[in-house]
Protein backbone atom coordinates (compact mmCIF):
# COMPACT_ATOMS: atom_id res chain seq x y z
CA UNK A 1 0.00 0.00 0.00
CA UNK A 2 1.18 3.51 -0.81
CA UNK A 3 0.92 5.89 2.12
CA UNK A 4 1.41 9.64 1.83
CA UNK A 5 1.56 11.49 5.11
CA UNK A 6 1.60 15.24 5.61
CA UNK A 7 3.27 16.26 2.36
CA UNK A 8 4.21 19.94 2.24
CA UNK A 9 5.81 21.77 -0.64
CA UNK A 10 6.22 25.44 -1.46
CA UNK A 11 7.53 26.88 -4.73
CA UNK A 12 8.51 30.39 -3.76
CA UNK A 13 5.35 32.09 -2.55
CA UNK A 14 3.09 29.36 -3.89
CA UNK A 15 2.00 26.55 -1.60
CA UNK A 16 1.69 23.50 -3.82
CA UNK A 17 1.06 20.90 -1.14
CA UNK A 18 -0.28 21.68 2.28
CA UNK A 19 -0.45 18.53 4.35
CA UNK A 20 -1.45 16.03 1.69
CA UNK A 21 -2.20 12.62 3.21
CA UNK A 22 -3.95 9.62 1.68
CA UNK A 23 -3.40 6.00 0.70
CA UNK A 24 -3.63 3.89 -2.45
CA UNK A 25 -4.40 0.23 -1.81
CA UNK A 26 -3.57 -2.88 -3.85
CA UNK A 27 -6.55 -4.10 -5.83
CA UNK A 28 -8.14 -0.64 -5.82
CA UNK A 29 -8.36 2.08 -8.39
CA UNK A 30 -7.86 5.37 -6.63
CA UNK A 31 -8.79 8.54 -8.46
CA UNK A 32 -6.82 11.60 -7.44
CA UNK A 33 -9.09 14.40 -8.52
CA UNK A 34 -8.75 18.13 -8.68
CA UNK A 35 -8.47 21.16 -10.90
CA UNK A 36 -5.38 21.91 -12.93
CA UNK A 37 -2.75 23.26 -10.53
CA UNK A 38 -4.38 21.72 -7.47
CA UNK A 39 -1.22 19.76 -6.55
CA UNK A 40 -1.88 16.40 -8.23
CA UNK A 41 1.26 16.27 -10.36
CA UNK A 42 3.49 17.58 -7.57
CA UNK A 43 2.18 14.82 -5.31
CA UNK A 44 2.74 12.11 -7.92
CA UNK A 45 6.20 13.35 -8.81
CA UNK A 46 7.15 13.40 -5.15
CA UNK A 47 6.55 9.64 -4.95
CA UNK A 48 9.56 9.21 -7.27
CA UNK A 49 11.67 11.81 -5.51
CA UNK A 50 11.30 14.18 -8.45
CA UNK A 51 10.20 16.89 -6.04
CA UNK A 52 12.08 17.76 -2.88
CA UNK A 53 9.40 17.89 -0.23
CA UNK A 54 9.58 20.48 2.53
CA UNK A 55 7.96 17.99 4.90
CA UNK A 56 6.08 14.72 4.88
CA UNK A 57 6.72 11.05 4.41
CA UNK A 58 5.95 8.60 1.65
CA UNK A 59 5.93 4.88 2.38
CA UNK A 60 5.29 1.70 0.43
CA UNK A 61 4.25 -1.36 2.41
CA UNK A 62 5.24 0.43 5.61
CA UNK A 63 8.75 1.38 4.49
CA UNK A 64 10.07 4.65 3.09
CA UNK A 65 10.12 4.52 -0.68
CA UNK A 66 13.60 3.56 -1.87
CA UNK A 67 15.12 2.51 -5.19
CA UNK A 68 13.90 -1.06 -4.73
CA UNK A 69 10.32 0.09 -4.17
CA UNK A 70 10.50 2.49 -7.10
CA UNK A 71 11.48 -0.34 -9.39
CA UNK A 72 8.07 -1.84 -8.56
CA UNK A 73 6.28 1.39 -9.52
CA UNK A 74 5.15 2.38 -12.98
CA UNK A 75 4.83 6.04 -13.89
CA UNK A 76 3.07 7.91 -16.63
CA UNK A 77 3.99 11.57 -16.19
CA UNK A 78 1.59 14.34 -17.11
CA UNK A 79 4.14 15.77 -19.53
CA UNK A 80 4.34 12.90 -22.01
CA UNK A 81 7.71 12.22 -23.50
CA UNK A 82 9.48 9.42 -25.34
CA UNK A 83 12.25 9.10 -27.91
CA UNK A 84 10.66 10.08 -31.19
CA UNK A 85 13.04 8.17 -33.43
CA UNK A 86 13.26 4.96 -31.43
CA UNK A 87 11.20 1.89 -32.45
CA UNK A 88 8.36 1.51 -29.98
CA UNK A 89 9.06 -2.06 -28.87
CA UNK A 90 12.70 -1.22 -28.15
CA UNK A 91 11.58 1.88 -26.32
CA UNK A 92 9.15 0.06 -24.05
CA UNK A 93 11.71 -2.70 -23.45
CA UNK A 94 14.36 -0.09 -22.56
CA UNK A 95 12.21 1.39 -19.83
CA UNK A 96 11.30 -2.10 -18.60
CA UNK A 97 15.02 -2.88 -18.34
CA UNK A 98 15.54 0.28 -16.34
CA UNK A 99 12.96 -1.14 -13.93
CA UNK A 100 15.03 -4.28 -13.49
CA UNK A 101 13.87 -6.76 -16.15
CA UNK A 102 16.59 -8.57 -18.07
CA UNK A 103 16.77 -7.90 -21.78
CA UNK A 104 14.85 -10.96 -22.96
CA UNK A 105 12.10 -10.55 -20.34
CA UNK A 106 11.85 -6.86 -21.22
CA UNK A 107 11.59 -7.60 -24.95
CA UNK A 108 8.88 -10.21 -24.31
CA UNK A 109 6.96 -7.97 -21.93
CA UNK A 110 7.11 -5.03 -24.34
CA UNK A 111 5.88 -7.08 -27.28
CA UNK A 112 3.09 -8.66 -25.24
CA UNK A 113 1.80 -5.43 -23.75
CA UNK A 114 1.96 -3.50 -27.02
CA UNK A 115 0.04 -6.35 -28.60
CA UNK A 116 -2.60 -6.14 -25.86
CA UNK A 117 -2.87 -2.41 -26.52
CA UNK A 118 -3.48 -3.05 -30.20
CA UNK A 119 -0.01 -2.17 -31.48
CA UNK A 120 1.21 -5.69 -32.17
CA UNK A 121 1.79 -4.96 -35.85
CA UNK A 122 3.66 -1.70 -35.20
CA UNK A 123 6.45 -2.97 -32.92
CA UNK A 124 9.26 -1.89 -35.25
CA UNK A 125 7.76 1.51 -36.04
CA UNK A 126 9.35 4.65 -34.71
CA UNK A 127 7.25 6.58 -32.25
CA UNK A 128 6.98 9.58 -34.57
CA UNK A 129 5.24 7.40 -37.17
CA UNK A 130 2.30 6.74 -34.81
CA UNK A 131 -0.86 8.78 -34.31
CA UNK A 132 -1.29 10.79 -31.14
CA UNK A 133 -3.62 8.19 -29.64
CA UNK A 134 -1.21 5.37 -30.37
CA UNK A 135 1.66 7.36 -28.90
CA UNK A 136 -0.42 7.60 -25.72
CA UNK A 137 -0.71 3.81 -25.72
CA UNK A 138 3.07 3.48 -26.02
CA UNK A 139 3.45 5.91 -23.14
CA UNK A 140 1.13 3.73 -21.08
CA UNK A 141 3.09 0.65 -22.07
CA UNK A 142 6.37 2.19 -20.86
CA UNK A 143 4.74 2.70 -17.48
CA UNK A 144 3.32 -0.78 -17.18
CA UNK A 145 5.47 -3.27 -19.13
CA UNK A 146 7.37 -4.38 -16.04
CA UNK A 147 4.08 -5.24 -14.34
CA UNK A 148 4.40 -2.78 -11.47
CA UNK A 149 2.74 -3.25 -8.08
CA UNK A 150 1.82 0.43 -8.08
CA UNK A 151 0.67 2.18 -11.25
CA UNK A 152 0.88 5.97 -11.01
CA UNK A 153 -0.77 7.61 -13.98
CA UNK A 154 -0.89 11.39 -14.18
CA UNK A 155 -3.88 12.53 -16.25
CA UNK A 156 -3.97 9.34 -18.35
CA UNK A 157 -7.26 10.34 -20.01
CA UNK A 158 -5.95 13.61 -21.40
CA UNK A 159 -6.34 13.77 -25.14
CA UNK A 160 -8.13 10.41 -25.48
CA UNK A 161 -11.25 9.94 -27.57
CA UNK A 162 -14.27 8.17 -26.03
CA UNK A 163 -13.35 4.73 -27.37
CA UNK A 164 -9.79 5.09 -26.07
CA UNK A 165 -11.18 6.15 -22.70
CA UNK A 166 -13.27 2.97 -22.64
CA UNK A 167 -10.24 0.80 -23.49
CA UNK A 168 -8.14 2.50 -20.80
CA UNK A 169 -10.94 2.09 -18.24
CA UNK A 170 -11.04 -1.64 -18.95
CA UNK A 171 -7.27 -1.91 -18.77
CA UNK A 172 -7.00 -0.09 -15.45
CA UNK A 173 -9.75 -2.30 -14.05
CA UNK A 174 -7.85 -5.40 -15.14
CA UNK A 175 -4.72 -4.10 -13.40
CA UNK A 176 -6.62 -3.62 -10.16
CA UNK A 177 -8.19 -7.06 -10.53
CA UNK A 178 -4.66 -8.47 -10.71
CA UNK A 179 -4.03 -7.01 -7.25
CA UNK A 180 -2.11 -3.91 -8.32
CA UNK A 181 -2.61 -0.52 -6.75
CA UNK A 182 -3.73 1.97 -9.38
CA UNK A 183 -3.52 5.66 -8.61
CA UNK A 184 -4.43 8.07 -11.38
CA UNK A 185 -5.07 11.77 -11.44
CA UNK A 186 -7.72 13.56 -13.43
CA UNK A 187 -9.51 16.86 -13.61
CA UNK A 188 -12.38 15.27 -15.59
CA UNK A 189 -14.46 14.09 -12.65
CA UNK A 190 -17.53 12.89 -14.47
CA UNK A 191 -15.42 10.93 -16.91
CA UNK A 192 -13.80 8.81 -14.22
CA UNK A 193 -16.53 8.61 -11.60
CA UNK A 194 -17.59 5.12 -12.62
CA UNK A 195 -14.04 3.84 -12.74
CA UNK A 196 -12.81 4.68 -9.25
CA UNK A 197 -13.07 2.50 -6.18
CA UNK A 198 -11.75 5.30 -4.05
CA UNK A 199 -11.31 8.98 -4.65
CA UNK A 200 -9.14 11.69 -3.22
CA UNK A 201 -10.20 15.25 -3.93
CA UNK A 202 -7.47 17.86 -3.72
CA UNK A 203 -7.70 21.61 -4.06
CA UNK A 204 -5.02 24.24 -3.47
CA UNK A 205 -2.73 21.52 -2.12
CA UNK A 206 -5.21 20.46 0.54
CA UNK A 207 -7.12 17.17 0.58
CA UNK A 208 -10.81 18.07 0.70
CA UNK A 209 -12.36 14.63 0.65
CA UNK A 210 -11.18 11.04 0.59
CA UNK A 211 -12.75 7.59 0.77
CA UNK A 212 -14.84 5.25 -1.33
CA UNK A 213 -16.82 6.88 -4.11
CA UNK A 214 -20.07 6.33 -2.26
CA UNK A 215 -18.67 7.71 1.00
CA UNK A 216 -17.33 10.79 -0.75
CA UNK A 217 -20.65 11.33 -2.52
CA UNK A 218 -22.34 11.14 0.87
CA UNK A 219 -20.02 13.80 2.26
CA UNK A 220 -22.29 16.79 1.51
CA UNK A 221 -25.20 15.06 3.33
CA UNK A 222 -27.91 15.51 0.72
CA UNK A 223 -29.35 13.74 -2.33
CA UNK A 224 -30.23 15.11 -5.72
CA UNK A 225 -33.72 14.66 -7.13
CA UNK A 226 -33.68 14.59 -10.93
CA UNK A 227 -36.81 15.22 -12.95
CA UNK A 228 -38.00 14.99 -16.55
CA UNK A 229 -41.08 16.80 -17.88
CA UNK A 230 -43.33 16.17 -20.88
CA UNK A 231 -42.89 19.75 -22.00
CA UNK A 232 -41.02 22.79 -20.76
CA UNK A 233 -42.24 23.48 -17.21
CA UNK A 234 -42.58 26.79 -15.46
CA UNK A 235 -38.89 27.18 -14.64
CA UNK A 236 -39.32 30.56 -13.00
CA UNK A 237 -41.77 29.03 -10.55
CA UNK A 238 -39.46 26.05 -9.88
CA UNK A 239 -36.37 28.23 -9.51
CA UNK A 240 -38.00 29.98 -6.60
CA UNK A 241 -38.20 26.58 -4.86
CA UNK A 242 -34.52 25.77 -5.49
CA UNK A 243 -34.89 23.74 -8.70
CA UNK A 244 -32.30 24.17 -11.44
CA UNK A 245 -32.77 23.39 -15.12
CA UNK A 246 -30.28 20.85 -16.55
CA UNK A 247 -32.04 20.93 -19.97
CA UNK A 248 -35.14 22.46 -21.44
CA UNK A 249 -37.29 19.66 -20.02
CA UNK A 250 -35.01 18.25 -17.30
CA UNK A 251 -34.04 19.63 -13.96
CA UNK A 252 -32.72 18.81 -10.50
CA UNK A 253 -33.14 19.88 -6.95
CA UNK A 254 -31.18 19.32 -3.80
CA UNK A 255 -32.93 17.09 -1.28
CA UNK A 256 -31.51 17.36 2.24
CA UNK A 257 -33.93 14.83 3.65
CA UNK A 258 -35.81 11.89 1.99
CA UNK A 259 -38.97 13.09 3.71
CA UNK A 260 -38.93 16.11 1.42
CA UNK A 261 -39.62 13.87 -1.59
CA UNK A 262 -43.47 14.09 -1.68
CA UNK A 263 -43.34 17.85 -1.20
CA UNK A 264 -40.79 18.39 -3.97
CA UNK A 265 -42.66 16.09 -6.37
CA UNK A 266 -45.84 18.00 -5.71
CA UNK A 267 -44.11 21.32 -6.49
CA UNK A 268 -42.70 19.84 -9.70
CA UNK A 269 -46.08 18.45 -10.73
CA UNK A 270 -47.63 21.88 -10.32
CA UNK A 271 -45.06 23.38 -12.68
CA UNK A 272 -45.41 20.79 -15.44
CA UNK A 273 -46.35 17.22 -16.31
CA UNK A 274 -43.67 14.85 -14.96
CA UNK A 275 -42.58 11.83 -17.02
CA UNK A 276 -39.82 10.38 -14.80
CA UNK A 277 -37.95 11.18 -11.63
CA UNK A 278 -35.07 9.65 -9.69
CA UNK A 279 -32.92 10.57 -6.77
CA UNK A 280 -29.35 9.72 -6.02
CA UNK A 281 -26.33 10.93 -4.14
CA UNK A 282 -24.70 14.00 -5.69
CA UNK A 283 -22.17 13.35 -8.46
CA UNK A 284 -18.47 13.76 -7.81
CA UNK A 285 -18.63 17.04 -9.69
CA UNK A 286 -21.32 18.25 -7.29
CA UNK A 287 -19.29 17.10 -4.33
CA UNK A 288 -16.19 18.72 -5.76
CA UNK A 289 -17.96 22.05 -6.11
CA UNK A 290 -19.30 21.64 -2.62
CA UNK A 291 -16.03 20.79 -0.89
CA UNK A 292 -13.87 23.24 -2.80
CA UNK A 293 -16.27 26.13 -2.47
Amino acid sequence: MLELDGLHKRFGDVTALNGVSFTAKPGYITGFLGRNGAGKSTTMRSVFGLVNLDAGEIAWDGRPVDAGAMSRFGFMPEQRGLYRKMPIAKQVAYFAQLKGLDRRAADDAAAQLLDELGLGDRLGDKLEALSHGNQQRVQLATALAHKPDLCLLDEPFNGLDPSAVRVLNQYLRSLADQGRAVLFSSHQLDLVEGLCDEVVIVDDGVIRATGSVVDVRRTPGYSVLSLAFQSTPEWAQLANEGFTATGTRTGAVRMDNPEQLPHLLRLAGEAGALTTFSYDLPSLSNVFEEVTG
Binding site: S71, P77, R80, G81, L82, Y83, L98
Partner: peptide, 16 residues
Protein backbone atom coordinates in the same frame (compact mmCIF):
# COMPACT_ATOMS: atom_id res chain seq x y z
CA UNK B 1 18.28 18.89 -24.53
CA UNK B 2 16.17 16.35 -26.45
CA UNK B 3 15.43 14.49 -23.23
CA UNK B 4 14.59 17.73 -21.47
CA UNK B 5 12.62 19.25 -24.33
CA UNK B 6 10.56 16.07 -24.83
CA UNK B 7 10.10 15.54 -21.07
CA UNK B 8 11.66 12.09 -21.33
CA UNK B 9 13.93 13.01 -18.48
CA UNK B 10 11.06 12.83 -15.99
CA UNK B 11 10.30 9.26 -16.99
CA UNK B 12 13.99 8.37 -16.92
CA UNK B 13 14.50 9.84 -13.47
CA UNK B 14 11.52 7.91 -12.16
CA UNK B 15 13.62 4.82 -12.90
CA UNK B 16 17.21 5.84 -12.17
Amino acid sequence: TEEKGNNIVELLLSSM
